[in-house]
Amino acid sequence: ESCGHITISVPIIRLGDPVTASCTISPTCSKLAQEPQILWRLQDGPNQPGDSQRHLGDGSQESTITLPHVNHTKAFLSCLVPWANSFQVLDQAELQAGYPPASPSNLSCLMNLTTNSLVCQWEPGPETYLPTNFTLKSFRSRTDCRYQEDSILDCVPEDRQSTCSIARKHLLLYQNMVLWVQAENVLGTSESPKLCLDPMDVVKLEPPVLQALDISPGLVPRQPGCLWLSWKPWKPGEFIEQECELRYQPQLRGTNWTLVSHLPSSEDQFKLCGLHQAPVYTLQIRCIRSPLPGLWSSWSPGLQLRPT
């Protein structure tokens, strides 16, 4: 039977809150002086007496201490007694402090057509200093997200990541689903606002590959200030009807982009005229699912060309 035993009101508390602990020395603790003065030590701080020490009916001694503001996220509280010309640690308790999780924010998702998974990410919120589990929860809702149908397997992110991928087999494409993030630790639980989306409406499209067409002069009369281009849609997104826009800019300081909108997603021969002959032009293209809802792809890498 050990000599001393610490009990703590709440082992894990909110940072800055008070905590009360008591240390009881059992009478059977033969080696000790009759009524030893029980001392406390937080981490490797000074030994300090408790707020009060009293005699319990069964002959044991109990000291109680209240730490007004715990500001260590993790600390050890030891109970000691003087012994010979030193001290003896009789018991030690672990104190943890932190915050309940704030609501995760900025939840956004993209459908990745290469891995065929819905990848969501979020802001976890301020540090809680406590082990906190984040879970991406979702359920299917075929109508406008008001009614929950079968829920989907919880998506648990890799350690400390604020992103999670829902595999294709858990997705019902072309139907709405509701997603949110739940954060949980010892001190509480919180949830992000809910997202309602059809995975196919948040497809991450890649831009087409823009290519210069070398039109042999014989075939087509050489018009000055023109360029011939072609592009093909990004293969994995080929089945998606898209609309594209082209922008071009002479490589001169201070010039702006000129935009050509409502272009098809595939073009074998596109003639672009009205360009100055001298400078090299930078051209880029991007596409968006249309007429169905979608997200713009990024701009394609710049293509440098000199007009005829």
Partner: peptide
């Protein structure tokens, strides 16, 4: 109609 056509193309591919 548009969604169905897209799904048909997706399955055909």
């Amino acid at each position: 109609l548009l969604k169905s056509l897209e799904q048909v193309r997706k399955i055909q591919t």
